[in-house]
Design a protein around this nucleic acid. Structure first.
Lengths: 118, 118
DNA sequence: TATATACTGAACTAGATGGTTCAGTATATA
DNA sequence: TATATACTGAACCATCTAGTTCAGTATATA
């Protein structure tokens, strides 16, 4: 039984903050893919796609393996556990705040206040 | 009943990709805070902290309100629903891949292959 | 062996990010 | 009224990002 060191959340959240990369994860969920096929699918140069894959790889979300001249990409073994954990833990904080009394109070005293000055 | 347009996942995942900003969310979970108190807590200039809060605000994760000379920050009403949803949906993909047969097969044929050539 | 395919790496671009300083404005307090 | 507090905005900086092109290497295929 191997321990996977979860790369810091910084890396995985940053990886997920790009729609192309989320799309790549979608795609790999439907089957492994080469860099070329991904580049075609997302209308991008090979080099550009390689960079995206590298970002996902560094975040531990994707693993790749080169056989012959083809590098095959697949979803990584460590999934989105750490991210799900952080989000779930913090969802509770948001819910708690939402129910809090001062929420309603501050809602009521919306006078004389500069709600969102630039 | 108000509809909150969930800012694209790009913005929220990017907001969450910085440890300071995740810390700010932690902190606001324990109570509302001014820009100054956050800047103190995270050892940063006011201006720097203001920028972090703005990023969180644009992602919809934090709301602020200025009363007098103090801008108070609190957790936003829309929580981490959209993010949790995306992650949960995609966790399943990872699990499915993990159990897939070709995982084991490719594990077995780890010969003659350049696993992660730079 | 010649050619096509699949990737790799270096170098460049425009624009974002995470931080700073410094000079302001607005509001409280003495 | 004078001073301190809390923020705001502009400008700057170094670094990262998302993409490109172009020139190369390695592997298959005819």
């Amino acid at each position: 039984m191997v321990q996977y060191i979860s790369p810091p959340l910084d890396l995985s959240f940053a990886a997920l903050s790009d729609a192309t990369r989320r799309g790549i994860i979608d795609q790999l969920g439907r089957g492994d893919a080469s860099i070329t096929s991904l580049a075609d699918k997302f209308q991008m140069t090979l080099t550009g796609m390689k960079k995206h894959v590298q970002v996902l790889e560094q975040a531990g979300l994707v693993v790749t393996q080169k056989v012959g001249r083809v590098r095959t990409c697949k979803l990584g073994k460590r999934g989105l556990e750490a991210e799900a954990e952080w989000i779930d833990a913090h969802r509770k904080l948001f819910e708690a705040r939402f129910e809090a009394l001062d929420e309603i109070i501050s809602e009521m005293k919306q006078e004389g206040s500069d709600d969102s000055a630039s």
